[in-house]
């Protein structure tokens, strides 16, 4: 069985991938810049050694994503790339607690950050992609990492994953943007990827101060843009609920979250037009 081993050197985490499906490397080249996707270099420390293999003696062609003996999930041949990307998310969400990790997109413009935590279906990734196309720097589409010592937000730049109707929305609004590796029939529906902007990759190690937390909700029936300021305790509870490792960090998690909440202003917004939402965020970040 051919095996390909390569390094994916992202910030702040590095991965060594061993796979029985060598074309994965070429597929990832469309999503990650050459400086991050390299042959293995044993002189570098690697955070996560992952295996993406067809299990020995398995009859089906499904690949299994593993971190050591921890199994993430099987991927059918047609959904290899999305499952790989989810596997990387799973490593960051479950096997690190050096940062307080919130399920949220993070972007920055002129030194002002906006954190967009939201459940699936709220339009978070679409808004995140639209902000990036409007010149904002992407820190992450998935993981808001908060430094436990200085409370700053640490970038974790990876491709933006768009689901279902978002793909059509982005294709329609930005015909020059390539949504690549569109994969139908995954367990989350159709998935496609948008690569981070040049600026986002260039500044992928630069932390940003907390400023704004916005819980977005796309609502096609909403005629006017609605905005409601959150109290600190509402913001705290909602962020804690969206966190992967708040409870693991115990008292330290509480302190870090409390400081983070106090450094931010929080809003809940409903919109039916992305451009309006972007204009509002730009205004709040002046």
């Amino acid at each position: 069985m051919p095996v390909k081993v390569f390094d994916l050197r992202l910030s702040p985490f590095t991965f060594r991938v061993s796979t029985s499906h060598p074309p994965l490397f070429q597929q990832l080249q469309q999503l990650y810049p050459p400086s991050t996707l390299t042959e293995i270099n044993l002189d570098n420390f690697i955070d996560f050694e992952v295996a993406y293999d067809k299990p020995t003696l398995a009859l089906s062609s499904a690949l299994a994503f593993h971190l050591g003996d921890k199994h993430f999930r099987f991927a059918e041949k047609h959904s290899l790339l999305p499952t790989f990307e989810w596997g990387l998310n799973w490593c960051v969400g479950n096997y690190q607690s050096q940062y307080l990790c919130i399920h949220a997109a993070v972007l920055e413009k002129n030194g002002f950050s906006v954190v967009l935590p939201a459940p699936p279906g709220s339009g978070k990734s679409t808004l995140c992609a639209m902000l990036m196309f409007a010149g904002w720097r992407l820190l992450s589409d998935e993981h808001c990492l908060i430094d436990l010592e200085d409370g700053m937000i640490v970038p974790c730049v990876r491709p933006i994953s768009l689901k279902n109707k978002s793909i059509q929305v982005v294709n329609h609004l930005y015909p020059h943007i390539d949504v690549c590796h569109i994969t139908p029939d995954t367990h989350k529906g159709t998935i496609g990827y948008v690569t981070p902007s040049k600026l986002s990759w260039q500044q992928s190690t630069i932390k940003v101060k907390p400023h704004l937390v916005v819980f977005p909700r796309y609502d096609k029936d909403q005629t006017l843009l609605a905005r409601e300021q959150l109290t600190q305790h509402e913001m705290f509870m909602q962020l804690a609920e969206n966190s992967f490792n708040y409870s693991v960090l115990g008292a330290l998690g509480f302190e870090t979250m409390a400081k983070f909440v106090m450094a931010n202003t929080g809003y809940r917004i409903s919109y039916n037009n992305g451009a309006d939402a972007i204009a509002m965020l730009e205004e709040l970040c002046r």
């Binding site: 955070d47 050096q98 409870s247 960090l249 115990g250």
Partner: peptide
């Protein structure tokens, strides 16, 4: 190395959480 310390720290956090 700092990057290794970070993972050991993660182990410490899990152990503390489990103690509680």
């Amino acid at each position: 190395p700092q990057a290794v310390q970070a993972h050991l720290q993660t182990g410490f956090h899990y152990a503390e959480k489990q103690k509680n």
